[in-house]
């Protein structure tokens, strides 16, 4: 076992982990941050996306020890200080960007990473950026609408309405 120290959602945390302990297992287990989901566990589905030093990564494809000293942000860090939903979360609610909700934490974290680099993405850019996030309920249209809305853009009628 080795000790690992990092900041998660602004709070310093540390714990003892094995070499093989995945970042997602450290977040969900010792830290109890179960908002980050494990979907496929083969780095295909994106349900486990978190930010490490500001970049979207799949927390099931990174070891906890590799986040030593890093700033990690999870879905639990996306709400406003008063506990109300953040802009992207509120847009997902408003536009029905989720049904079962399993993929939603990863979708929101990927959306946040996209909007940081590209504050006004086109519909095509949003769809391309979400290549690594799989949703089996919504058919994606409402997720795309939510992200357009969260970026302050008009939400067009998208096919399949």
């Amino acid at each position: 076992m080795s000790n690992v120290t990092m900041k998660v959602n602004g709070k310093p945390v540390s714990g003892d982990v094995e070499g093989r302990t995945l970042l997602v297992d450290f977040l969900r287990g010792p830290l109890g941050l179960t908002g980050t989901h494990v979907g496929c566990d083969t780095s295909q589905c994106g349900a486990c996306v978190v930010h490490v030093n500001g970049e979207a990564v799949k927390a099931c494809a990174m070891f906890a020890l590799e986040a030593e000293g890093a700033e990690v942000r999870t879905i639990e860090g996306m709400a406003e200080a008063d506990g109300s939903l953040g802009t992207i979360q509120a847009a997902f609610q408003e536009h029905h960007g989720l049904q079962c909700g399993f993929c939603t934490p990863g979708m929101v974290m990927s959306a946040a990473a996209l909007l940081k680099d590209n504050p006004k993405p086109s519909e095509a850019e949003i769809r391309e950026y979400l290549e690594g996030n799989i949703c089996r309920c919504t058919g994606y249209h409402n997720i795309v609408k939510a992200i357009l809305a969260a970026s302050g853009q008009d939400v067009p009628a998208i096919a399949a309405e």
Partner: peptide, 9 residues
Amino acid sequence: IGDPAVRNR
């Protein structure tokens, strides 16, 4: 290559 999260690692 892959998707954005894969390209970051």
